[in-house]
Every structure is written in C-alpha cells, then in structure tokens.
C-alpha cells in the first residue's frame, strides 16, 4: 500500500488541479479576511465557502482522477499486490494531497488571522469533509463505468448534501412549525456530514444563539462532550462505510 501511496502522492504533488485548489482556497480565505476586516465575520463567511467548495472539489477531483487512472490501475492490478493495497494507496494519496492543499490554502490564513478554537474546528471539519467525500468519490468512480456518468452522480450527491437536504430540513421545520420537531431535526441534521460540520463550527463561533430554539437544541446536544463524541463518530462512519463498500466493490470489479 505504501508504495502505491508514495508514487501516487508524487504524481498528485505536481497535479495542476491540486495546486489550483490550494491557490483558490488561499485567495478566497485571504480575500475574505482582507475584505471583511473583522476576522470573526470573515470566519463566518469562510464557513459557507468551505462547506460548499470542499465537498464539491473533493468529489469531482476524486472521481475524475480515478477514472483517468483506470488504465494504470489495471497495470497495477496485474502486479503481485492485492487490490486492497492499490485502492488504499490511491485513496490515501488523494486524501493526503487534498488535505495538504487545504492546510496551505485554508489553514495558513486561519493561522495568521484568527488562531483560535473556532478556526481549528473549521480546519478539522474541512479535513473531515475531505475524507468523507474522497471516500464517496471513490465509491462513485468504482460503481459507475462511464466517466461522464460518474461526474454527474458526484454533482448530484453534492447537490443533495449541500443544497437539497438543507432545503428539505427547512421545509420540514416550516411545515411542522406548530409541532415540537426540533428533537427530530437534530439527528436529521446530524446525518448529513455537511450539516454536521456546519453545526460543529457554528457552535464554536456561538452563532447557535442566533438560530433560536433549534440552535439551543443543537448546543444542548452537540455542545456536550457526549454530543461531540457522537458527532465525531458519525463523521467517522461517513468515512468508514463508503470506504469499506468501495474496497468490497473494487475487490470484485472486472477491470
């Protein structure tokens, strides 16, 4: 696994898309801090950018990279190494490259402008989302035979998690506003990794107070040690389950 990881990472280190991603994040983050003036306000804007961009870029890049590597993956698969080692090496390298790009593009400005706990949670949440969506991207690339279809499914998944899911939750809260549905909204929001990351960061910035009763419910649950543990576990499951399914699919896949 390490050998595949090492050389895939060398390849990715010179990849224009990864370098572009790092620069884009740096420009956006630095730009927000400069334009907003107030680091706290900039951080709130940055949360939206991170929660939208990170899943999109990670999903699409993972899917495209794995499709473009198909012939080389075939060549690796005829070497005396197991398929698990190949996929583990590739997935680890992809995640590492994107995490390093994110640490440079997002972590550096955060460290310079607002080196505090909310910034750390934002960085960690962003990293968690990279791992979640890289695993989902790998699964999509392995399940769909055609590249265009794979990218389409990736965009649909992103759309679902970032926009549709929230819209459905808001509709639910609006439609049942006469009922005490907040206890239901908490687990529903927690199921979506993007929402989960958003809640974690918002609680640290203390924006939950502006979210009314829902915010209080979120804070009550996710603000506690157990709640944080549960949130961390859900994110971990979002990484592990797609990864395990991807391994299973790759093991049986005809290349």
């Amino acid at each position: 696994m390490f050998k595949v990881f090492k050389y895939t990472l060398i390849d990715l280190a010179r990849n224009r898309f990864v370098l572009g991603y790092a620069l884009l994040m740096l420009l956006v983050a630095q730009g927000l801090f400069v334009v907003e003036g107030d680091p706290a306000k900039a951080l709130i804007s940055l949360v939206q950018v991170v929660l939208t961009l990170v899943p999109l870029i990670t999903l699409v890049f993972t899917v495209v990279y794995l499709y473009d590597s198909l012939e080389f993956t075939q060549l690796l698969a005829v070497q005396p190494i197991g398929r698990r080692s190949i996929l583990a090496g590739q997935l680890l390298a992809l995640s590492s490259a994107l995490l390093v790009a994110q640490a440079f593009g997002l972590g550096l400005p955060l460290l310079v402008h607002t080196p505090d706990l909310p910034a750390l949670i934002l960085s960690l949440s962003g990293s968690g989302l990279v791992l979640v969506f890289a695993a989902l991207g790998a699964l999509i690339a392995l399940k769909q035979r055609e590249k265009a279809r794979g990218v389409g499914v990736a965009l649909f998944i992103w759309f679902l998690f970032v926009l549709v899911y929230d819209a459905l939750l808001m509709w639910l809260m609006f439609a049942f506003s006469d009922h005490p549905i907040e206890p239901l909204v908490v687990p529903l929001a927690g199921i979506n990794p993007v929402d989960l990351a958003r809640i974690m960061v918002m609680l640290q910035i203390d924006l939950a107070a502006m979210m009314g009763y829902s915010g209080a419910v979120y804070k009550n649950f996710f603000g506690s040690t157990i709640g944080m543990g549960v949130a961390g576990s859900i994110l971990l499951l979002w990484i592990l389950i797609p990864t395990m399914i991807a391994f299973r699919v790759f093991q049986r896949k005809d290349l």
Binding site: K3, Y7, T8, I10, E71, L75, L76
Partner: peptide, 23 residues
C-alpha cells in the same frame, strides 16, 4: 497492455522505480 496510460506527472525513472518497488 495495448493502451499505455501512466500517471502524467511521474517521470519515466520514477515509474520504473515504482514498479520495481511494487514487485
């Protein structure tokens, strides 16, 4: 193989080293 597609950013030497290591 009939189609030779490799990681584009690796050098030829790195690819040969990779395959040597993998084997």
């Amino acid at each position: 193989p009939q189609i030779s597609q490799f990681p584009t950013a690796l050098t030829v030497g790195q690819l040969l080293d990779m395959m040597k290591d993998v084997r």
